[in-house]
Simulated scan of single mutants.
Amino acid sequence: MRLALERGHAVTASTRQPGAFPLQHARLRVAGGDATDPGVARDALEDCDAVISVIGSAYTRRPVTVYSRAASAVVGAMRESGCRRLLAVTSSGVTPLAQRDDLSVPGRAFHRLARRTFGRTVYDDMERMEAVVSDSPVDWTIVRPPGLTDEPGTGYAIAEDVVEGPYCSRDDLAAVLLDQLDDDRYRRRVAAVSTPGLHVGALTTFRREMLKR
């Protein structure tokens, strides 16, 4: 969000808790409401040229539907408004294991574990989200980062479907998303992204991703 404003964009942020939104800016509009509500999506898209979806859910054993429902609401609102460009963030965890030639043996084992156990319901709904987006008539790009971290961005790597690197800085992910607004290379394609050379300790990753601390 900060980077978009720094680059001179006018931004509408859609959030469930607009009163708690941490930024204020003359070019920032904060729209409150449930992102899965088509009416909220229509309001948020007013006068917008592009949509960046970074909706997320914590890992849970319960069924997850927020990704696919929000995607359906956004795609419907885009079709009504004429807004064409959509960037939707999912995860490298959705990438089929057969395509993951970047993974080590332990990495492949962890990917399989996450996909089948603690991350299953989240990844299942990400797959449904990707289907909604890729079946739509808009100019979409699906962006799949690996583990996200708060370490400073140092420059990203991007490639179709798969890219090496187990982590992506949130700074670099923000840069990717904004750069892709005017980049045609990955329109109607899946783009994998990472921060090359970024390493985070296993315990730190576990606390951030699983314990949210």
Rank of each mutant, 00 (worst) to 15 (best):
S72M: 10
E130G: 06
L178A: 02
D124W: 02
V162A: 01
L113S: 08
R62G: 11
I55H: 01
G33C: 07
L148Q: 03
G82E: 08
D161H: 14
A26W: 08
A50C: 09
R62N: 15
R108L: 11
Q17L: 13
P22S: 09
G56C: 08
M78P: 09
A41K: 07
P152K: 09
E160D: 03
T149G: 04
E160Y: 10
D171F: 12
R115K: 12
P18S: 01
R128L: 13
G82H: 10
E164A: 15
R208Y: 12
V162Y: 05
G155F: 14
H25G: 13
P145Q: 06
V40Q: 14
A175N: 08
E130L: 05
Y156F: 14
G33E: 09
R213D: 12
R16S: 05
H9Q: 00
G155E: 11
T12K: 07
T117K: 09
V89Y: 06
K212A: 15
E164W: 15
L28Q: 02
D184F: 10
A192N: 05
L211I: 11
S136I: 01
D124C: 04
D102T: 02
F118G: 07
Y186N: 02
F21M: 00
L28G: 06
T65Y: 08
C48F: 02
A70C: 11
A191M: 03
L45E: 13
T12Y: 01
V133H: 05
S81I: 11
H9L: 04
